[in-house]
Design a protein around this nucleic acid. Structure first.
Length: 469
RNA sequence: GGCGCCGUGGCCAAGUGGUAAGGCGGCAGACUGCAAAUCUGCUAUUCGUCGGUUCGAUUCCGACCGGCGCCUCCA
């Protein structure tokens, strides 16, 4: 078996990967800041991480994943102040919406969804360690900062020159009294607006709240231990977020924070990064409204490798909707098939091999998707031939289910309510009768009638199948 | 300015030093009363442009053109 390989941002190369304990991959994935619904760009990253955990299990390992929910943050506080609410009142409905959207896209449940506000003691303890180690200091403004000058390997992950801020770079508004412009806040001294919305806690440095980077380090180490197997996120988190996580974690523990860093590329819209500040975001709610299934979104996202930018084009999404419809039809056909051929079994074997290799090859989803469609074509061909053997059919079902467990691209059938179903059956009976007496004008009129109600029919053998959509 | 990515058919998008996966769409055929679904064939002699290396490059090198990202709190 070929080694399982992942691209590690630390080395910028594809490396063999295995969990440190040989059994369970401890995976930390940066989750959403819950002040607004996550957009499709965010979800592209979460889909990449979903694929990762499924690929890990396909490989035979267990996975323990943490996805944090950042529920205390500048933007949340601003929103709370605007609406006269507490941060909890702002974040609670957004968290619920996040999970609903996530399920729509069939992103599996992580084992842990810790909220930053539930780990304040762990965060404070981490800051205390850093202060004790002499790499953090409290400034005149009361906030506690990490002194990057005390951490010699700062910048190793992002490979950025830390000595100078180049022209063209976005320049920080220096809100805080840092010793060095690049030092980052571990603990932010509370301001009146923080107190007003419940975003302040007691600490050895006075009332305050955690800095963003600190949240991840504290929660990751609290739940998964001091060295993670994989830490994942999107490329925009490489700097400063992950760089800072490494600094504060390793400066506290003296151990590597993560063995492998994986970063997904952006989803673009209209040729630009999808982002709220660009104003080109689309949400899962928009997709639902337009009838785009989660399966179709998965197909679209997995058509490109996770480390390559993907442009959200309406025409491509339409293509994914159609592609996934084909999978649905095939799945139905496979379910009711009564036998197969030797060639069907060969196709199934080829599919399993291709998908296992693709997933082990730095999560090569495009290759897996291509293999799946090659299988569908071959299998349809064999089913057309009407094989009778049970073994090959069972094998085809087994492998198809295995692959479905990784990619999860088959849309759920649209269920018709009982009333509609009864009506359809009545109309089909009338059509059957008309066809029997070769009154095709009436039969076609009935078909048009059904089509107008969104019912598609297929005459197959002696029977007629129908479905919604 | 620094670092990095990308440019493949109508659209999306794989890929390899030896002559272009897959999906959508389109065209033709089989099947069908007609459709639909499915299958079959066709749909890039060519991979941004110009050079170079090589027996041979889309794949390696260089330049140029074009697009994108990161460079302090953005997945």
């Amino acid at each position: 078996m070929a080694p399982f390989r992942l691209f590690n941002t630390l080395s910028r190369t594809i490396e063999p990967f295995a969990p440190a304990d040989g059994q369970t991959v401890r995976l930390y994935t940066c989750g959403p800041t819950v002040y607004n619904p996550a957009h499709l760009g965010n979800f592209r990253t979460f889909l990449f991480e979903d694929l990762m955990r499924r690929a890990i299990r396909l490989r035979g390992w267990q996975v323990e994943q943490v996805m944090n929910l950042t529920d205390v943050d500048d933007k949340i506080i601003v929103r709370a102040a605007q609406q006269g609410k507490t941060i909890r009142e702002i974040t609670e409905p957004v968290v619920e919406g996040f999970h609903a959207d996530r399920r729509y896209l069939r992103i599996e449940d992580a084992e842990h969804y810790p909220r930053a506000t539930a780990y304040i003691p762990e965060m404070i303890a981490l800051v205390e360690r850093l202060v004790a180690n002499g790499v953090a200091y409290q400034a005149e403004d009361g906030s506690v900062y990490f002194a990057i000058g005390k951490f010699p390997t700062y910048g190793r992950l992002s490979r950025l020159d830390t000595r100078e801020i180049q022209s063209g770079a976005r320049v920080a508004q220096d809100d805080y009294a840092k010793e060095n412009a690049q030092d980052f806040a571990l603990w932010k001294a509370a301001k009146p607006e923080d107190e007003a919305c419940g975003a302040a806690w007691d600490s050895p440095w006075g009332r305050g709240r955690p800095g963003w980077h600190l949240e991840c380090s504290a929660m990751a180490m609290a739940i998964l231990g001091e060295t993670l197997d994989i830490h994942a996120g999107a490329v925009d988190l490489i700097f400063p977020h992950h760089e800072d996580e490494i600094a504060q974690s390793e400066a506290a523990t003296g151990r590597p924070f993560a063995r492998c860093w994986c970063h997904g590329e952006f989803l673009l819209t209209d040729g630009a990064k999808m982002a709220k500040r660009v104003g080109n975001v689309q949400n899962v709610a928009d997709l639902r409204t337009n009838g785009v299934s989660g399966a179709a979104v998965r197909h679209f996202v997995f058509s490109t490798h996770y480390r390559k930018q993907l442009n959200l084009a309406a025409e491509a999404l339409e293509g994914s909707i159609e592609a996934v419809r084909r999978l649905r039809d095939f799945a139905d056909r496979l379910a009711v098939a009564t036998g197969g051929t030797a060639a069907l079994e060969d196709a199934a074997d080829a599919l399993e091999t291709a998908v296992r290799e693709a997933m082990a090859d730095d999560l090569d989803a495009p290759a897996a998707v291509a293999a799946l469609f090659e299988f569908v074509r071959a299998a349809n061909r064999e089913l057309d031939r009407g094989g009778r053997e049970a073994g090959p059919l069972a094998r085809a079902r087994e492998v198809f289910a295995l692959v479905d467990g990784v990619l999860d691209l088959i849309p759920a059938p649209v269920q018709a309510d009982a009333e509609l179903a009864a009506w359809v059956e009545e109309r089909l009976a009338a059509r059957r009768e008309a066809r029997a007496r070769r009154d095709f004008g009436t039969a076609d009129a009935i078909r048009d009638e059904l089509t107008a109600r969104g019912i598609a029919i297929e005459d197959a053998g002696g029977t007629t199948r129908w479905k919604v959509g």
